[in-house]
Design a protein around this nucleic acid. Structure first.
Lengths: 223, 223
DNA sequence: CGCAGCCTTGAGCAGTATCAAAGTCGGTGG
DNA sequence: CCACCGACTTTGATACTGCTCAAGGCTGCG
Protein backbone atom coordinates (compact mmCIF):
# COMPACT_ATOMS: atom_id res chain seq x y z
CA UNK A 1 0.00 0.00 0.00
CA UNK A 2 1.06 3.56 -0.66
CA UNK A 3 1.12 6.38 1.83
CA UNK A 4 -1.74 8.80 1.50
CA UNK A 5 0.20 12.05 1.24
CA UNK A 6 -2.82 14.07 2.21
CA UNK A 7 -3.23 12.19 5.48
CA UNK A 8 0.50 12.25 6.09
CA UNK A 9 0.39 16.02 6.07
CA UNK A 10 -2.54 15.92 8.47
CA UNK A 11 -1.21 13.50 11.05
CA UNK A 12 -0.42 16.14 13.58
CA UNK A 13 -4.04 17.25 13.64
CA UNK A 14 -5.16 13.66 13.59
CA UNK A 15 -3.00 12.75 16.56
CA UNK A 16 -4.07 15.70 18.61
CA UNK A 17 -7.69 14.76 18.00
CA UNK A 18 -8.48 18.02 16.28
CA UNK A 19 -9.31 16.04 13.21
CA UNK A 20 -12.27 14.26 14.66
CA UNK A 21 -14.97 16.41 13.19
CA UNK A 22 -13.27 17.29 9.95
CA UNK A 23 -14.78 15.78 6.85
CA UNK A 24 -12.15 15.48 4.18
CA UNK A 25 -13.14 16.62 0.73
CA UNK A 26 -13.42 13.42 -1.33
CA UNK A 27 -12.41 15.27 -4.47
CA UNK A 28 -8.98 16.08 -3.23
CA UNK A 29 -8.70 12.96 -1.16
CA UNK A 30 -8.72 9.45 -2.49
CA UNK A 31 -9.12 6.88 0.21
CA UNK A 32 -6.64 4.05 0.05
CA UNK A 33 -8.89 1.13 0.79
CA UNK A 34 -12.33 -0.06 1.68
CA UNK A 35 -13.10 -2.93 4.00
CA UNK A 36 -16.31 -4.79 4.65
CA UNK A 37 -17.74 -5.40 8.09
CA UNK A 38 -15.94 -8.30 9.73
CA UNK A 39 -12.80 -8.01 7.66
CA UNK A 40 -9.47 -8.00 9.41
CA UNK A 41 -7.18 -5.01 9.15
CA UNK A 42 -4.28 -6.56 11.05
CA UNK A 43 -3.80 -9.40 13.44
CA UNK A 44 -1.71 -10.38 16.42
CA UNK A 45 1.83 -11.36 15.52
CA UNK A 46 1.84 -9.39 12.29
CA UNK A 47 4.57 -6.87 11.55
CA UNK A 48 3.32 -3.29 11.35
CA UNK A 49 4.56 -1.50 8.26
CA UNK A 50 2.45 1.60 8.71
CA UNK A 51 -0.57 3.13 10.37
CA UNK A 52 -4.17 3.50 9.31
CA UNK A 53 -6.31 6.57 9.41
CA UNK A 54 -10.03 5.88 9.58
CA UNK A 55 -11.77 7.93 6.95
CA UNK A 56 -15.14 6.52 7.87
CA UNK A 57 -16.31 3.51 9.80
CA UNK A 58 -15.54 1.71 13.03
CA UNK A 59 -12.78 -0.70 13.99
CA UNK A 60 -12.59 -2.85 17.09
CA UNK A 61 -9.18 -3.48 18.58
CA UNK A 62 -9.36 -6.85 20.26
CA UNK A 63 -7.21 -9.16 22.28
CA UNK A 64 -8.05 -12.82 21.93
CA UNK A 65 -7.77 -14.25 25.39
CA UNK A 66 -8.29 -17.74 26.72
CA UNK A 67 -10.54 -20.11 24.83
CA UNK A 68 -11.17 -17.61 22.07
CA UNK A 69 -12.97 -15.19 24.34
CA UNK A 70 -12.11 -11.78 23.04
CA UNK A 71 -11.65 -8.53 24.91
CA UNK A 72 -12.32 -5.28 23.09
CA UNK A 73 -9.52 -2.96 24.13
CA UNK A 74 -10.74 0.00 22.16
CA UNK A 75 -13.17 1.00 19.45
CA UNK A 76 -11.59 3.34 16.92
CA UNK A 77 -13.85 5.66 14.97
CA UNK A 78 -13.78 8.10 12.09
CA UNK A 79 -10.80 10.39 12.47
CA UNK A 80 -8.75 8.03 14.63
CA UNK A 81 -5.31 6.71 13.87
CA UNK A 82 -4.96 2.95 14.32
CA UNK A 83 -1.96 0.70 14.72
CA UNK A 84 0.62 3.24 15.75
CA UNK A 85 1.43 1.69 19.11
CA UNK A 86 2.79 -1.51 17.61
CA UNK A 87 4.50 0.40 14.81
CA UNK A 88 6.26 2.80 17.16
CA UNK A 89 7.24 0.10 19.62
CA UNK A 90 9.09 -1.89 16.93
CA UNK A 91 7.15 -4.97 18.03
CA UNK A 92 4.60 -7.10 16.27
CA UNK A 93 0.92 -6.37 16.78
CA UNK A 94 -0.31 -7.76 20.07
CA UNK A 95 -3.95 -7.20 19.18
CA UNK A 96 -6.23 -7.66 16.18
CA UNK A 97 -8.05 -4.93 14.29
CA UNK A 98 -11.44 -5.96 12.93
CA UNK A 99 -14.04 -3.87 11.10
CA UNK A 100 -17.25 -3.34 13.04
CA UNK A 101 -18.88 -1.92 9.93
CA UNK A 102 -17.91 -1.11 6.36
CA UNK A 103 -14.90 1.10 6.76
CA UNK A 104 -12.55 3.09 4.59
CA UNK A 105 -9.05 3.83 5.72
CA UNK A 106 -5.99 5.65 4.50
CA UNK A 107 -2.54 4.25 4.89
CA UNK A 108 0.65 5.92 6.01
CA UNK A 109 3.86 3.98 5.59
CA UNK A 110 6.13 3.61 8.56
CA UNK A 111 9.11 5.13 6.76
CA UNK A 112 7.11 8.18 5.79
CA UNK A 113 5.73 8.56 9.27
CA UNK A 114 9.16 8.24 10.87
CA UNK A 115 10.71 10.70 8.46
CA UNK A 116 7.99 13.18 9.28
CA UNK A 117 8.60 12.71 12.99
CA UNK A 118 12.29 13.36 12.65
CA UNK A 119 11.78 16.50 10.63
CA UNK A 120 8.94 17.97 12.63
CA UNK A 121 9.68 18.77 16.25
CA UNK A 122 6.14 19.75 17.06
CA UNK A 123 4.75 16.51 15.67
CA UNK A 124 7.29 14.57 17.68
CA UNK A 125 6.18 16.24 20.86
CA UNK A 126 2.58 15.58 19.98
CA UNK A 127 3.31 11.90 19.51
CA UNK A 128 5.03 11.71 22.88
CA UNK A 129 2.24 13.63 24.54
CA UNK A 130 -0.49 11.46 23.04
CA UNK A 131 1.23 8.21 23.97
CA UNK A 132 1.79 9.38 27.54
CA UNK A 133 -1.76 10.56 27.89
CA UNK A 134 -3.04 7.20 26.71
CA UNK A 135 -0.87 5.46 29.24
CA UNK A 136 -2.43 7.54 31.95
CA UNK A 137 -5.90 6.73 30.68
CA UNK A 138 -5.18 3.05 30.68
CA UNK A 139 -4.25 3.19 34.34
CA UNK A 140 -7.75 4.49 34.98
CA UNK A 141 -9.28 1.84 32.79
CA UNK A 142 -7.33 -0.87 34.58
CA UNK A 143 -8.72 0.33 37.88
CA UNK A 144 -12.20 0.34 36.43
CA UNK A 145 -11.87 -3.24 35.26
CA UNK A 146 -10.45 -4.34 38.60
CA UNK A 147 -12.81 -2.56 40.94
CA UNK A 148 -16.11 -1.74 39.33
CA UNK A 149 -19.02 -4.13 39.07
CA UNK A 150 -20.28 -5.36 35.73
CA UNK A 151 -23.29 -3.11 36.17
CA UNK A 152 -21.08 -0.06 36.57
CA UNK A 153 -18.86 -1.04 33.68
CA UNK A 154 -21.89 -1.59 31.48
CA UNK A 155 -23.14 1.89 32.22
CA UNK A 156 -19.68 3.22 31.46
CA UNK A 157 -19.53 1.30 28.19
CA UNK A 158 -22.81 2.86 27.07
CA UNK A 159 -21.48 6.31 27.90
CA UNK A 160 -18.33 5.69 25.86
CA UNK A 161 -20.33 4.19 23.01
CA UNK A 162 -22.61 7.20 22.93
CA UNK A 163 -19.54 9.24 22.13
CA UNK A 164 -18.28 6.74 19.58
CA UNK A 165 -21.66 6.71 17.83
CA UNK A 166 -21.87 10.50 18.19
CA UNK A 167 -25.25 10.38 19.87
CA UNK A 168 -26.78 8.09 17.28
CA UNK A 169 -28.26 4.78 18.43
CA UNK A 170 -25.59 2.29 19.45
CA UNK A 171 -25.54 -0.51 16.94
CA UNK A 172 -23.33 -3.28 18.22
CA UNK A 173 -23.88 -7.00 18.54
CA UNK A 174 -24.56 -8.16 22.07
CA UNK A 175 -21.44 -10.26 21.88
CA UNK A 176 -19.31 -7.26 21.03
CA UNK A 177 -20.95 -5.23 23.75
CA UNK A 178 -20.22 -7.97 26.28
CA UNK A 179 -16.62 -8.19 25.10
CA UNK A 180 -16.29 -4.45 25.45
CA UNK A 181 -17.64 -4.50 29.00
CA UNK A 182 -15.69 -7.62 29.80
CA UNK A 183 -18.53 -9.91 30.79
CA UNK A 184 -20.79 -12.67 29.47
CA UNK A 185 -23.29 -11.94 26.72
CA UNK A 186 -26.21 -13.03 28.87
CA UNK A 187 -25.19 -10.73 31.68
CA UNK A 188 -25.04 -7.68 29.46
CA UNK A 189 -28.46 -8.53 28.04
CA UNK A 190 -29.98 -8.78 31.51
CA UNK A 191 -28.46 -5.46 32.52
CA UNK A 192 -29.76 -3.79 29.38
CA UNK A 193 -33.22 -5.07 30.22
CA UNK A 194 -32.89 -3.50 33.67
CA UNK A 195 -31.66 -0.22 32.26
CA UNK A 196 -34.58 -0.20 29.87
CA UNK A 197 -37.07 -0.96 32.65
CA UNK A 198 -35.67 1.98 34.59
CA UNK A 199 -36.01 4.25 31.57
CA UNK A 200 -32.28 4.81 31.15
CA UNK A 201 -32.11 3.47 27.62
CA UNK A 202 -34.43 2.61 24.77
CA UNK A 203 -33.99 -0.54 22.74
CA UNK A 204 -35.03 -0.99 19.11
CA UNK A 205 -33.93 -4.43 17.98
CA UNK A 206 -30.21 -4.49 18.54
CA UNK A 207 -30.00 -0.71 18.66
CA UNK A 208 -29.65 1.10 21.95
CA UNK A 209 -30.59 4.72 22.57
CA UNK A 210 -29.39 6.59 25.62
CA UNK A 211 -32.29 8.30 27.35
CA UNK A 212 -30.91 9.32 30.73
CA UNK A 213 -27.21 10.03 30.38
CA UNK A 214 -26.97 11.63 33.80
CA UNK A 215 -28.28 8.59 35.59
CA UNK A 216 -25.95 6.34 33.60
CA UNK A 217 -23.04 8.50 34.69
CA UNK A 218 -24.25 8.19 38.25
CA UNK A 219 -24.43 4.41 38.02
CA UNK A 220 -20.99 4.13 36.47
CA UNK A 221 -19.46 6.11 39.33
CA UNK A 222 -21.33 4.67 42.28
CA UNK A 223 -19.97 1.71 44.09
CA UNK B 1 15.13 19.75 43.74
CA UNK B 2 18.05 19.79 41.38
CA UNK B 3 18.57 17.51 38.42
CA UNK B 4 21.07 14.75 39.03
CA UNK B 5 23.38 15.32 36.10
CA UNK B 6 24.76 11.83 36.34
CA UNK B 7 21.32 10.27 35.94
CA UNK B 8 20.39 12.74 33.23
CA UNK B 9 23.28 11.46 31.17
CA UNK B 10 22.15 7.92 31.82
CA UNK B 11 18.47 8.24 31.00
CA UNK B 12 18.72 6.54 27.68
CA UNK B 13 20.10 3.42 29.32
CA UNK B 14 17.58 3.76 32.10
CA UNK B 15 14.67 3.99 29.70
CA UNK B 16 15.77 1.05 27.66
CA UNK B 17 16.03 -1.01 30.83
CA UNK B 18 19.72 -1.72 30.35
CA UNK B 19 20.33 0.06 33.59
CA UNK B 20 18.58 -2.44 35.76
CA UNK B 21 21.61 -4.29 36.99
CA UNK B 22 24.04 -1.43 37.09
CA UNK B 23 25.08 -0.32 40.54
CA UNK B 24 26.08 3.29 40.45
CA UNK B 25 29.28 4.17 42.21
CA UNK B 26 28.24 6.14 45.28
CA UNK B 27 31.44 8.15 45.18
CA UNK B 28 30.68 9.71 41.87
CA UNK B 29 26.94 9.70 42.43
CA UNK B 30 25.14 11.55 45.16
CA UNK B 31 21.54 10.55 45.46
CA UNK B 32 19.12 13.41 45.59
CA UNK B 33 16.81 12.22 48.29
CA UNK B 34 15.87 9.48 50.69
CA UNK B 35 12.35 8.52 51.60
CA UNK B 36 11.02 6.32 54.36
CA UNK B 37 8.59 3.48 53.82
CA UNK B 38 5.07 4.84 53.47
CA UNK B 39 6.12 8.31 52.40
CA UNK B 40 4.49 9.84 49.36
CA UNK B 41 6.58 10.75 46.33
CA UNK B 42 3.76 12.38 44.40
CA UNK B 43 0.01 12.30 44.45
CA UNK B 44 -2.94 12.52 42.11
CA UNK B 45 -3.66 16.01 40.89
CA UNK B 46 -0.11 17.23 41.46
CA UNK B 47 1.85 18.89 38.68
CA UNK B 48 4.87 16.91 37.54
CA UNK B 49 8.00 19.00 37.35
CA UNK B 50 10.39 16.18 36.68
CA UNK B 51 10.94 12.44 36.86
CA UNK B 52 12.46 10.19 39.49
CA UNK B 53 15.05 7.52 39.04
CA UNK B 54 14.98 4.83 41.72
CA UNK B 55 18.47 4.37 43.01
CA UNK B 56 17.35 1.74 45.48
CA UNK B 57 14.02 0.72 46.93
CA UNK B 58 10.48 0.05 45.77
CA UNK B 59 7.62 2.38 44.90
CA UNK B 60 3.98 1.46 44.39
CA UNK B 61 2.04 3.40 41.81
CA UNK B 62 -1.56 3.40 42.96
CA UNK B 63 -4.92 4.63 41.85
CA UNK B 64 -7.33 5.37 44.66
CA UNK B 65 -10.68 4.09 43.48
CA UNK B 66 -14.06 4.07 45.11
CA UNK B 67 -14.31 4.19 48.88
CA UNK B 68 -10.57 4.47 49.29
CA UNK B 69 -9.92 1.05 47.86
CA UNK B 70 -6.63 1.32 46.06
CA UNK B 71 -5.43 -0.42 42.93
CA UNK B 72 -1.71 -0.96 42.47
CA UNK B 73 -1.05 -0.17 38.83
CA UNK B 74 2.62 -0.93 38.94
CA UNK B 75 5.49 -1.56 41.33
CA UNK B 76 8.63 0.31 40.30
CA UNK B 77 11.97 -1.04 41.43
CA UNK B 78 15.64 -0.13 41.51
CA UNK B 79 16.68 1.16 38.12
CA UNK B 80 13.21 2.25 37.05
CA UNK B 81 12.16 5.71 36.01
CA UNK B 82 8.98 6.95 37.68
CA UNK B 83 6.55 9.72 36.86
CA UNK B 84 7.43 10.27 33.23
CA UNK B 85 3.99 9.48 31.84
CA UNK B 86 2.32 12.39 33.57
CA UNK B 87 5.28 14.65 32.87
CA UNK B 88 5.33 13.88 29.16
CA UNK B 89 1.58 14.10 28.79
CA UNK B 90 1.49 17.67 30.16
CA UNK B 91 -1.23 16.57 32.57
CA UNK B 92 -1.34 16.32 36.31
CA UNK B 93 -0.54 13.01 37.96
CA UNK B 94 -3.51 10.67 37.82
CA UNK B 95 -1.96 8.22 40.29
CA UNK B 96 -0.05 8.35 43.57
CA UNK B 97 3.50 7.16 44.14
CA UNK B 98 4.11 5.70 47.61
CA UNK B 99 7.25 4.09 49.01
CA UNK B 100 6.91 0.38 49.74
CA UNK B 101 10.22 0.45 51.58
CA UNK B 102 12.96 2.95 52.40
CA UNK B 103 13.92 4.28 48.99
CA UNK B 104 16.45 6.65 47.52
CA UNK B 105 15.74 8.42 44.27
CA UNK B 106 17.42 10.85 41.93
CA UNK B 107 15.57 13.68 40.35
CA UNK B 108 15.67 14.94 36.78
CA UNK B 109 13.96 18.25 36.08
CA UNK B 110 11.45 18.39 33.30
CA UNK B 111 13.27 21.20 31.49
CA UNK B 112 16.53 19.24 31.52
CA UNK B 113 14.79 16.09 30.35
CA UNK B 114 13.02 17.89 27.52
CA UNK B 115 16.16 19.64 26.39
CA UNK B 116 17.95 16.33 26.28
CA UNK B 117 15.14 14.83 24.23
CA UNK B 118 15.28 17.61 21.69
CA UNK B 119 19.03 17.36 21.29
CA UNK B 120 19.30 13.60 21.20
CA UNK B 121 17.48 11.84 18.38
CA UNK B 122 18.26 8.39 19.66
CA UNK B 123 16.90 9.17 23.10
CA UNK B 124 13.77 10.59 21.53
CA UNK B 125 13.17 7.41 19.63
CA UNK B 126 13.79 5.38 22.75
CA UNK B 127 11.19 7.39 24.63
CA UNK B 128 8.65 6.85 21.88
CA UNK B 129 9.47 3.17 21.69
CA UNK B 130 9.20 2.65 25.44
CA UNK B 131 5.89 4.47 25.70
CA UNK B 132 4.41 2.50 22.82
CA UNK B 133 5.63 -0.78 24.23
CA UNK B 134 4.03 0.01 27.57
CA UNK B 135 0.77 0.79 25.85
CA UNK B 136 0.88 -2.61 24.23
CA UNK B 137 1.60 -4.25 27.56
CA UNK B 138 -1.29 -2.49 29.21
CA UNK B 139 -3.65 -3.93 26.61
CA UNK B 140 -2.54 -7.35 27.77
CA UNK B 141 -2.94 -6.40 31.40
CA UNK B 142 -6.41 -5.07 30.75
CA UNK B 143 -7.39 -8.39 29.21
CA UNK B 144 -5.93 -10.20 32.20
CA UNK B 145 -7.96 -8.14 34.63
CA UNK B 146 -11.12 -8.58 32.60
CA UNK B 147 -10.91 -12.27 31.84
CA UNK B 148 -8.78 -14.14 34.34
CA UNK B 149 -9.99 -15.41 37.67
CA UNK B 150 -8.60 -14.09 40.93
CA UNK B 151 -6.72 -17.35 41.33
CA UNK B 152 -5.01 -16.90 37.97
CA UNK B 153 -4.24 -13.26 38.65
CA UNK B 154 -2.80 -14.16 42.03
CA UNK B 155 -0.44 -16.65 40.44
CA UNK B 156 0.52 -14.01 37.89
CA UNK B 157 1.13 -11.43 40.62
CA UNK B 158 3.52 -13.80 42.38
CA UNK B 159 5.40 -14.36 39.14
CA UNK B 160 5.74 -10.62 38.56
CA UNK B 161 6.73 -10.03 42.17
CA UNK B 162 9.42 -12.68 41.94
CA UNK B 163 10.99 -10.56 39.25
CA UNK B 164 10.53 -7.36 41.22
CA UNK B 165 12.14 -8.93 44.29
CA UNK B 166 14.80 -10.50 42.07
CA UNK B 167 14.18 -13.98 43.40
CA UNK B 168 14.32 -12.94 47.05
CA UNK B 169 11.32 -13.65 49.25
CA UNK B 170 8.37 -11.40 48.44
CA UNK B 171 7.85 -9.04 51.34
CA UNK B 172 4.61 -7.20 50.83
CA UNK B 173 1.68 -6.61 53.15
CA UNK B 174 -1.35 -8.75 52.38
CA UNK B 175 -3.30 -5.59 51.73
CA UNK B 176 -0.81 -4.46 49.11
CA UNK B 177 -0.77 -7.89 47.56
CA UNK B 178 -4.56 -7.87 47.33
CA UNK B 179 -4.53 -4.41 45.80
CA UNK B 180 -1.99 -5.56 43.27
CA UNK B 181 -4.08 -8.59 42.31
CA UNK B 182 -7.26 -6.56 42.44
CA UNK B 183 -9.16 -8.54 45.02
CA UNK B 184 -10.05 -8.64 48.72
CA UNK B 185 -7.36 -9.20 51.32
CA UNK B 186 -9.10 -12.29 52.69
CA UNK B 187 -9.32 -13.83 49.25
CA UNK B 188 -5.63 -13.45 48.56
CA UNK B 189 -4.82 -14.97 51.94
CA UNK B 190 -6.98 -18.01 51.23
CA UNK B 191 -5.37 -18.47 47.85
CA UNK B 192 -1.90 -18.23 49.36
CA UNK B 193 -2.85 -20.92 51.84
CA UNK B 194 -3.93 -23.12 48.94
CA UNK B 195 -0.74 -22.45 47.01
CA UNK B 196 1.24 -23.32 50.11
CA UNK B 197 -0.71 -26.52 50.67
CA UNK B 198 0.05 -27.52 47.08
CA UNK B 199 3.74 -26.80 47.59
CA UNK B 200 3.85 -23.91 45.12
CA UNK B 201 5.07 -21.35 47.63
CA UNK B 202 6.60 -21.23 51.07
CA UNK B 203 5.45 -18.73 53.66
CA UNK B 204 7.58 -17.32 56.48
CA UNK B 205 5.55 -14.75 58.34
CA UNK B 206 4.55 -12.22 55.71
CA UNK B 207 7.31 -13.34 53.37
CA UNK B 208 6.52 -15.52 50.40
CA UNK B 209 9.00 -17.74 48.60
CA UNK B 210 8.29 -19.15 45.18
CA UNK B 211 8.93 -22.90 45.13
CA UNK B 212 7.33 -24.08 41.89
CA UNK B 213 7.53 -21.31 39.34
CA UNK B 214 6.51 -23.59 36.48
CA UNK B 215 3.27 -24.59 38.11
CA UNK B 216 2.48 -20.99 38.96
CA UNK B 217 2.98 -20.09 35.33
CA UNK B 218 0.66 -22.90 34.40
CA UNK B 219 -2.03 -21.70 36.78
CA UNK B 220 -1.78 -18.14 35.57
CA UNK B 221 -2.32 -19.22 31.99
CA UNK B 222 -4.98 -21.86 32.45
CA UNK B 223 -8.60 -20.92 32.29
C1' DC C 1 -40.36 -21.93 3.97
C1' DG C 2 -36.65 -23.16 6.50
C1' DC C 3 -32.21 -22.44 8.03
C1' DA C 4 -28.47 -19.95 10.52
C1' DG C 5 -27.16 -16.73 13.43
C1' DC C 6 -28.27 -13.79 16.80
C1' DC C 7 -30.88 -12.57 20.92
C1' DT C 8 -33.39 -13.64 25.15
C1' DT C 9 -34.83 -16.09 29.21
C1' DG C 10 -34.42 -19.34 33.05
C1' DA C 11 -32.22 -22.23 36.53
C1' DG C 12 -28.44 -23.54 39.12
C1' DC C 13 -23.81 -23.12 40.59
C1' DA C 14 -19.10 -21.45 41.58
C1' DG C 15 -16.15 -17.97 42.84
C1' DT C 16 -15.55 -13.91 45.54
C1' DA C 17 -16.84 -10.28 48.53
C1' DT C 18 -18.32 -8.99 52.96
C1' DC C 19 -18.84 -9.14 57.79
C1' DA C 20 -17.43 -10.63 62.23
C1' DA C 21 -14.19 -12.39 65.32
C1' DA C 22 -10.03 -14.33 66.89
C1' DG C 23 -5.09 -14.93 66.53
C1' DT C 24 -0.22 -13.19 65.79
C1' DC C 25 3.59 -10.20 65.84
C1' DG C 26 6.58 -6.36 66.79
C1' DG C 27 7.25 -2.41 69.29
C1' DT C 28 6.74 0.59 73.40
C1' DG C 29 6.45 2.17 77.84
C1' DG C 30 6.12 1.07 82.56
C1' DC D 1 12.05 -7.53 81.26
C1' DC D 2 7.37 -8.03 80.72
C1' DA D 3 2.78 -6.81 79.54
C1' DC D 4 0.06 -4.43 76.65
C1' DC D 5 -1.32 -2.05 72.51
C1' DG D 6 -2.20 -1.56 67.79
C1' DA D 7 -1.73 -3.07 63.35
C1' DC D 8 -1.72 -6.74 60.52
C1' DT D 9 -3.10 -11.49 59.46
C1' DT D 10 -5.98 -15.41 59.52
C1' DT D 11 -10.19 -18.05 59.81
C1' DG D 12 -15.13 -18.93 59.52
C1' DA D 13 -19.83 -18.14 58.01
C1' DT D 14 -22.87 -16.17 54.83
C1' DA D 15 -24.61 -13.68 50.90
C1' DC D 16 -24.47 -12.34 46.34
C1' DT D 17 -22.74 -11.34 41.86
C1' DG D 18 -22.05 -13.00 37.58
C1' DC D 19 -20.99 -17.30 34.84
C1' DT D 20 -22.42 -21.45 32.56
C1' DC D 21 -25.45 -24.47 30.51
C1' DA D 22 -29.69 -25.34 28.26
C1' DA D 23 -33.60 -24.17 25.74
C1' DG D 24 -36.51 -21.37 23.15
C1' DG D 25 -37.59 -17.10 20.21
C1' DC D 26 -36.71 -13.86 16.65
C1' DT D 27 -35.08 -12.07 12.16
C1' DG D 28 -33.20 -11.79 7.82
C1' DC D 29 -31.90 -14.23 3.92
C1' DG D 30 -31.44 -17.81 0.48
Amino acid sequence: MVTCSHCLSEIEKILSGAHNAIVLDPHIHNKNSEYKKGEILFSEGGIPRGVFYIHSGLIKIIKSGNEGKEQIIEIAKTGDLVGFRAMLSDKTYNVDGVMLEDTSVCYIQKSDFMQEINLNEQLRNTVIRVLSKELQDRADLLTTMAQKTVRQRSALALILLDDIYKGNPINLSRDDLANYVGTATETVIRLLREFKKDGLVGIQGRKITILEMNRLIEISKLI
